[in-house]
């Protein structure tokens, strides 16, 4: 197994008010067993040793579940490959001599904090607007098996619930729309009997917050579904559309 020489073109931006620019970095001795982030670690190590400012990027679990990592690599959210996050992208997907472009998520609702780090707190605010079931945490509730849930519904709800909130859908959408993220949460609760009592209130509140945050509108290009590391389906967006229309025509005022 040989090692690769690569050229990275990385977005550098010292802070929210800096204009930012693409900067070229050569990287040598890249092993194909490295993950993309480990390759960036190697580059950062070198930058620190040379007294330069290392590249800031978000990452944490490095196993594709926390949703922290967020790079737009060679024109795609989480890079080439499907069903993976950037931390699960391995260098064997690249070859010697490649030029790799690395940019942050770009959306007005996700302002750049520094280099490749963006602020995704809009997602938290959408969640706080209605992404929950209003139960107390007393534990004095009905037995977990009191309401049987059809396996299909439970499975679909789970599929929606696997969203890791990474924001790849927004990053990849030509309109910077957050529909897939919001729909996944709305759909999860809409499918479960426990979520039904608040379903209408929830969808109205979450969509209102989504709009307030300045995300774009969905034009059904389907790019989000393709780039979503968890493969969350457009069906959930359709379900949210249904829920929303039902909620808006039946609400009291």
């Amino acid at each position: 197994m040989g090692t690769m020489k690569l050229t990275l073109k990385i977005w550098r931006q010292s802070g929210p008010n800096d204009k930012g620019k693409m900067v070229s970095y050569p990287v040598n001795d890249v092993s194909e067993d490295m993950s993309f982030l480990e390759m960036l670690d190697v580059l950062n190590d070198e930058l620190v040793r040379n007294g330069d400012d290392p590249i800031a990027f978000d990452h944490d679990c490095r196993e594709g579940i926390c949703g922290s990592c967020s790079l737009f690599i060679n024109g795609e959210a989480h890079g080439p490959g499907r069903g993976i996050t950037t931390c699960q992208l391995h260098m064997r997907k690249f070859k010697d001599g490649d030029v790799i472009q690395v940019e942050p998520w770009r959306a007005g609702a996700f302002p750049v904090v520094k280099d490749l780090v963006v602020d995704r707190s809009a997602f938290d605010r959408i969640q706080a607007a209605g992404g929950f079931v209003s139960v107390n945490t007393s534990g004095n509730l009905v037995d977990g098996n009191a309401i049987p849930i059809p396996k299909n519904d439970a499975d679909s709800a789970f599929d929606a619930a696997t969203c890791i909130g990474c924001g790849a859908c927004v990053a990849t959408c030509t309109n910077s729309s957050a529909m897939l993220f919001v729909a996944a949460k709305v759909s999860q609760f809409a499918l479960l009997p426990q979520g039904r009592p608040e379903a209408r209130k929830r969808v109205l509140a979450m969509v209102e917050q989504m709009d307030k945050e300045g995300f774009g509108n969905c034009s059904n290009t389907g790019a989000c579904e393709v780039e979503c590391p968890k493969g969350i389906s457009l069906e959930h967006i359709a379900r949210m559309n249904r829920e929303y229309v039902a909620a808006s025509v039946t609400k009291d005022r």
Partner: peptide, 14 residues
């Protein structure tokens, strides 16, 4: 909704 565009976008992939 996207005030700063990408430098390189491979939208055809998705």
């Amino acid at each position: 909704a996207r005030p700063v565009r990408y430098h390189y976008e491979k939208a055809g992939a998705n």
